[in-house]
């Protein structure tokens, strides 16, 4: 664990003087379930990407060809550092391509 700083080294008033540092604060370590995206059934509609409250669905420039030879230019993945397992992506997915599975299994 990193060493916590003295009160003397902290800006007064709890003011955060280094903007954007929430990226350093991993908020996804307490989830029970994590989404697993099925690249075969996913239609790349992006709804999961829109609804995720933590921006934890990531769109990757990674081509994917389905077994029925349909080509997609992008793939979707989950950023486990920030996904808190709420399941909104799975709930909203119109083709049921997202399954919530226990973290230990995933």
């Amino acid at each position: 664990m990193e060493k916590l700083v003295s009160y003397k080294e902290m800006a007064p008033g709890g003011i955060v003087v280094n903007p954007g540092n929430s990226l350093e604060y991993k908020t996804g370590d307490w989830k029970v379930l994590i989404p697993v995206i099925n690249q075969e059934t996913c239609t790349r509609c992006r709804i999961c990407w829109y609804v995720c409250p933590d921006n934890a669905i990531v769109e990757l420039d990674k081509e994917y060809t389905t077994k029925k030879n349909r080509k997609y230019k992008v793939s979707y993945d989950v950023n486990a550092d920030f996904c808190k397992g709420c399941g909104m992506c799975a709930q909203e997915c119109p083709v049921k391509a997202i399954e919530m599975v226990p973290v230990e299994v995933a």
């Binding site: 916590l4 009160y7 902290m10 007064p12 008033g13 709890g14 003011i15 955060v16 903007p19």
Partner: peptide
């Protein structure tokens, strides 16, 4: 950022 939440590791020092 002004007025952000402060966890137990920091609040006391403020």
């Amino acid at each position: 950022s002004i007025g952000s939440i402060t966890p137990p590791e920091y609040y006391y020092e403020f």
